[in-house]
Each structure stands twice: as structure tokens, then as C-alpha cells.
């Protein structure tokens, strides 16, 4: 049970996953040390979920090295999975069982004694604020409740690493914040978190470090703030025009700010001082119908690196 020399719980080199002709993950290198909250950011189809499934030891890598907790996922799958918690993209809770039974029966798959399983189920229900629904079936629960129950289920074996695939996709804003808050508590307890997301705000909130994925490859790596400093300006001016296409306007803005990105519905103007850049736009006689000056986000990093938006 030795962890690899540099102390990484998850260690991947040249990791690939192919499905027939299609390459989902195209040679990625990842190292996640203990206690880190690590994110995979990218649009749908970037290869995030395939990577997560390989790390969860339910999908064999097509090529490359993968060590988890110092072990080989192909030969030591059960031993690794005993120390992982997995929260899949789509909830696969057991509809025939109650909320509490979902946790106690799941604990038995880890050979956790029944008494311990019951105690832990009650603690976890408390943790995800579902104690009052303990006896209810799963089906009538709201999306946010189901998600919290799935997270509780992933914690039933007191895992060292928790894998979360798109933990808040499909939830309303209030439910998302509740999930984030619980995940933040886990992080404070020293649990290593691995999550995929295509929400930049989620990545910024939760991740100590992240990789930006596109087309199965890693296109950038670093802490969220670091990535923004490296690949974007401090501020962004979003300009909307009534009639003209954003591409045509872009031509008239040469020399204003650092660079521009024309999107179908708006023009993004990157500059460290947004208000100053906006003043320059107006000096050139352009009259945008709508203006927003904001700080750069990971969305802008992604746009700069790939030329595409994260959520379409």
C-alpha cells in the first residue's frame, strides 16, 4: 500500500481511452496529492467522464499508466474501490428502498458491519440534511435531495478519495449552493475531492487546482486564479449591438484592449481596465445596445484556449 514517491493519490501518465475508432481520452498526465480538491473542467464530450470512470476502476485504460492509492486499477480494483466514494453523473439510487436503506444496504457492499452501517447512515443523513426523509422512498425526492443522498451514499465507506461527476448539473441555484456547501465541508475535513464540471463558477468555488480539457486532451492546468491571470485579462467588456454582426464590429475595434472575441450574440473585449476600454469604444462612435463590464472567469480562459464556449 505504498503511495507513489511524490505522494500523489492519483497518478496518470499518457492515459488514454478509446471506444473503437473514437478516442475519448487522448493521453493525459495527472497527479493529485492527498487533501486536494481537483477539477476537470470542459464541455460535454471533452473526456471528463471517461477519465473519472477509469479512476473509479470501472473502465480499463486503453493505454498509459494509472496508479490509484499506489495500486493498479486493473488488478486491484476491489481493494481500490473499497477506499473510493463515487457520485455518478446520473443518480442511480435504488428505487425499491427507502432513503435510509439506500445507505445501509450500500454499506454492506463494503462489508461494513450492520450496526456500524446504521450509525453511519444516520450521521450521513444528518450531514446531507435528509434526516426527516429517512423513511421515504427515493422517487418522490427532489433532484437536489436525490443528489445529496447520492453524495451521502458515496461517503458511507469513509472514503479517502471522493469522485464527483458533474455534482450539480441539472439542479436549481438554491440546491446547487447547498451541495457546494456540503462539499466544502468535506474538503475542510481533509477528504481528497475529484470533480468534473462544465460550470466555471463551480470550479472556482471548489477546486484548489484544475485542468481544462478539450477533445480528450489537457489544454491548461493550474489554480483557478492562476489560470485566469495567465490566459485572460483582469476585466472583460461584453458589448451587444442592435443590428450589426459582432464580427463586423470587431474589425472597428483594432487597438482597443488586448484582444476581442466575437460570439454569435455579443462581442467580448478583453482589457485590464474595462471602463477605460469602454470609453475608447464610445470614442470610435460605436453605440452598443447593451454593456457589461465584469471580471474574467474560467469561461474566458476556456474561450481563449479553445475558441469555444463551455456551455452551449
Amino acid at each position: 500500500m505504498t503511495v507513489s514517491s511524490d505522494g500523489a493519490l492519483i497518478h496518470a501518465r499518457g492515459l488514454r481511452k478509446r471506444f473503437g475508432e473514437f478516442t475519448a481520452v487522448d493521453g493525459i498526465d495527472v497527479d493529485v496529492p492527498r487533501g486536494e480538491a481537483f477539477g476537470f473542467l470542459g464541455p460535454n464530450g471533452a473526456g471528463k467522464s471517461s477519465t473519472m470512470r477509469m479512476i473509479a476502476c470501472v473502465s480499463a485504460p486503453s493505454a498509459g499508466t494509472l496508479r490509484i492509492l499506489g495500486m493498479d486499477p486493473l488488478r486491484q480494483g476491489p481493494a481500490i474501490r473499497a477506499r473510493l466514494g463515487v457520485c455518478p453523473q446520473l443518480d442511480n439510487l435504488d428505487p425499491e428502498l427507502t432513503v435510509r436503506e439506500n445507505l445501509t444496504t450500500y454499506a454492506r457492499y463494503f462489508r461494513i458491519p450492520r450496526r456500524v452501517a446504521r450509525e453511519r447512515a444516520d450521521e450521513l443523513l444528518e450531514f446531507v440534511q435528509l434526516t426527516d426523509r429517512a423513511g421515504s422512498k427515493v422517487e418522490p425526492l427532489s433532484g437536489g435531495m436525490k443528489r445529496r443522498l447520492t453524495i451521502a451514499r458515496a461517503l458511507v465507506n469513509e472514503p479517502e478519495i471522493v469522485l464527483l461527476d458533474e455534482p450539480t448539473t441539472g439542479l436549481d441555484p438554491q440546491a446547487r449552493h447547498l451541495v457546494w456547501e456540503r462539499l466544502f465541508r468535506l474538503k475542510q475535513q481533509g477528504v481528497t475531492l475529484l470533480l468534473t464540471t462544465h460550470y466555471m463558477d463551480e470550479a472556482e468555488q471548489l477546486c484548489d487546482r484544475l485542468v481544462v480539457m478539450d477533445g480528450g486532451r489537457i489544454v491548461a492546468e493550474g489554480a483557478p486564479r492562476e489560470l485566469i491571470t495567465r490566459y485572460s485579462t483582469r476585466e472583460v467588456v461584453e458589448l451587444r449591438f442592435a443590428a450589426d454582426a459582432p464580427e463586423d464590429i470587431a474589425g472597428k475595434l483594432a487597438g482597443v484592449g488586448e484582444r476581442t472575441e466575437a460570439l454569435p450574440d455579443r462581442l467580448l473585449l478583453y482589457a485590464d481596465d474595462g471602463d477605460a476600454a469602454l470609453a475608447q469604444v464610445q470614442q470610435r462612435g460605436l453605440e452598443p445596445a447593451g454593456v457589461l463590464v465584469r471580471r474574467s472567469t474560467l469561461e474566458d480562459v476556456f474561450l481563449h484556449l479553445t475558441g469555444r464556449t463551455l456551455v452551449d
Binding site: 470501472v58 480494483g77 476491489p78 474501490r81 442511480n92 435504488d94 450500500y106 457492499y109 462489508r111 451514499r153
Partner: peptide, 14 residues
């Protein structure tokens, strides 16, 4: 349909 086994496979059960 229930994807019950997907959940179980995330545990040591083979």
C-alpha cells in the same frame, strides 16, 4: 433501467 449495478460496481463488489 434502474442502473442498480452501476452503483454497486463503484464498491468492491465485482
Amino acid at each position: 433501467y434502474v442502473k442498480l449495478y452501476d452503483g454497486i460496481l463503484a464498491t468492491p463488489v465485482r
